[in-house]
């Protein structure tokens, strides 16, 4: 199991809405796949097909209804992300698993430089070094230096998205979950962001990324999972 980081087995998610007379809303049903270390798995499909729900379950923002998500640590130990304690998830999120949501949740009165450097400081990197790394990533993402001290709530959609991604990928992690990272970016910044994500992958981080454009995915993903109506209808190796 040394080369595998994640094993998703028969994972399902249904929502029960107690306020609407116990109405059941399906998320996705019996999805299975494995993810290798350093592999880029692209997930694609129409909106509403269950893509975001799937990665939210892996990050445990959603509680899976059934199935397993076995996460393998580098030392061979494993843990089921579907059922392990909240404390274990908190530790994994701080140290090993990153998630970039579709929407950026800005924190009042925290500058974009702080947002990116705090993620590093939390991993135990000292403040000066964290700020240096954060500045360098923000510059590569074409965030103007005079905005480093500004609060992202006033940024444009594309700038917010780049800060959001920068915060997740500047630190060293083993698994990156990323939901439509290129939406709302222009061609130039798209290429830059993608390059940085692929750099992370080259250094050994496994990536599960949602992209609605399957053709786009074929230019960089190792494997592609296609979802439709809450089911993984096919998964294929991508040989570019």
């Amino acid at each position: 199991m040394k080369d595998i980081i994640l094993e998703v087995k028969n994972l399902s998610k249904r929502f029960t809405l107690h306020l609407l007379g116990e109405k059941m809303v399906p998320g996705f049903h019996k999805v299975s796949f494995t993810l290798k270390r350093g592999e880029f798995l692209g997930v694609t499909g129409k909106s509403g097909s269950g893509k975001s729900s799937l990665i939210k379950c892996i990050y445990r923002t959603y509680l899976p209804t059934e199935g397993e998500i076995i996460y393998y640590y580098k030392n061979g130990n494993s843990v089921d992300l579907a059922t392990c304690s909240d404390k274990e998830i908190v530790d994994l999120r701080r140290e090993r698993i990153g998630y970039v949501s579709q929407f950026f949740y800005t924190i009042p009165r925290i500058s974009c430089l702080e947002i990116v450097s705090q993620a590093l400081i939390q991993q135990g990197i000292d403040k000066n070094k964290a700020e240096r790394k954060a500045k360098s990533m923000l510059s590569r993402f074409l965030i103007p230096e005079n905005l480093f001290g500004a609060y992202p709530s006033t940024f444009s959609g594309g700038e917010k998205q780049r800060v959001n991604i920068a915060q997740a990928i500047t630190r060293k992690i083993d698994l990156l979950l990323i939901d439509e990272p290129l939406a709302s970016l222009d061609k130039k910044t798209k290429d830059i962001v993608l390059k940085e994500i692929l750099k992370l992958k080259k250094r050994g981080t496994s990536v599960i990324g949602i992209f609605h454009d399957e053709k786009e995915l074929r230019s960089f993903a190792d494997r592609i999972l296609v979802m439709e109506n809450g089911k993984g209808i096919k998964i294929y190796e991508n040989h570019n």
Partner: peptide, 9 residues
């Protein structure tokens, strides 16, 4: 639960 889980699910 985790704060994001309590809020979103």
């Amino acid at each position: 639960g985790l704060t994001d889980q309590i809020l979103e699910d």
